[in-house]
């Protein structure tokens, strides 16, 4: 067989092998994304219009962008993401550094740190609503031992959202710890030895050895966490249900409510498209920042 014939055969086999995956992807993943875009230009905004396909231009987008509750939910999503990302980046790194040291039972201790990652936020929510119960939960019992009443956690309009973000981040810690640990183990041992001889303190070692070595890993974690922080529906439903009132209602809950409680499917689709665009833009900015930083 000629060389180009071989190539063409390889190419055919290549397409054949990726076809099942691509077909499933196109039908069940990609098409719904495109369909959302289409629905957002229709007028399916009441129970009477569930089959409606009238084109209404940017009407849904205008009504979303001029709606106070959208911007409120948008703000909540950003607050959730900022707290969630900050908690994970800081504690993931610190815990990895200390779990990298040698001590008795390190493997078992690491297992304990990973377990929350494999649990689901509905069960976690049930437990944390118990632990953080303002009047009867064990956490506020500690506050009472010191004569304080303790915060109202999920029933406080100001604390519900930050608390939910921290609990969600706590549950996700394992990914950061494992990733940072893997990167820490790649630091050549002799670098530490030199630092030891030079008499570097622990903080100096972190500052001049660990952080520079881990920067690419931390940037990558930041990008992944940024995207994950918007997958927050289950966490919010499990922990606060969006309340009290609408004080922890994030965009994903708004989309759900608008679609399935108020039958505004086109409005909800438009919200989805706007929020997706927002995520893509933020992600672009991060990627840009990362490449600028790396080519410094």
């Amino acid at each position: 067989m000629s060389k180009s014939g071989m190539m063409r055969r390889e190419e055919r086999i290549g397409y054949l092998f990726i076809a099942p995956f691509l077909i499933m992807f196109a039908v069940f993943k990609l098409y719904p994304m495109i369909y959302g875009f289409i629905v957002s230009f229709w007028d399916r905004n009441s129970e009477m219009k569930l089959m409606d396909t009238t084109f209404v231009g940017f009407d849904n987008y205008i009504s979303v962008l001029t709606n106070h509750s959208f911007w409120e939910a948008f703000g909540h999503s950003i607050v959730f993401s900022v707290i969630y990302i900050a908690f994970l980046m800081v504690f993931g790194f610190i815990l990895a550094v200390i779990l990298n040291r040698n001590f008795m039972g390190r493997t078992a201790v690491r297992t304990c740190f990973y377990i929350p990652y494999v649990t689901n936020m509905i069960a976690v929510g049930i437990v944390f609503k118990y632990l953080l119960n303002p009047s009867r939960g064990p956490v506020n019992a500690i506050f009472r031992m010191f004569g304080a009443d303790g915060p109202r956690w999920f029933s406080s309009p100001t604390l519900a959202l930050p608390t939910a973000a921290i609990v969600a981040a706590w549950a996700a810690l394992a990914f950061h710890i494992i990733t940072c640990l893997a990167a820490l183990q790649d630091i050549p041992q002799d670098v530490y030895e030199v630092a030891e001889i030079e008499g570097a303190t622990f903080m100096q070692k972190i500052r001049y050895i660990v952080l520079p070595f881990l920067t690419p890993t931390l940037f990558m974690l930041l990008t992944i966490t940024l995207i994950n922080s918007f997958r927050n529906y289950t966490a919010i439903v499990g922990l606060t249900g969006g309340g009290p009132g609408t004080s922890s209602k994030v965009v994903s809950l708004l989309i759900y409510d608008d679609a399935f409680n108020f039958m505004k499917f086109s409005i909800a689709s438009a919200e989805g498209v706007i929020f997706t665009l927002f995520i893509i833009i933020v992600n672009r900015i991060f990627t840009k920042a990362r490449s600028v930083w790396e080519s410094r």
Binding site: G36, F230, R231, I255, F275, I279
Partner: peptide, 12 residues
């Protein structure tokens, strides 16, 4: 496409 969370496409 991994960037698009399932949350934003639940309606379609």
């Amino acid at each position: 496409t991994m960037m698009v969370p399932g949350e934003t496409t639940m309606v379609p």
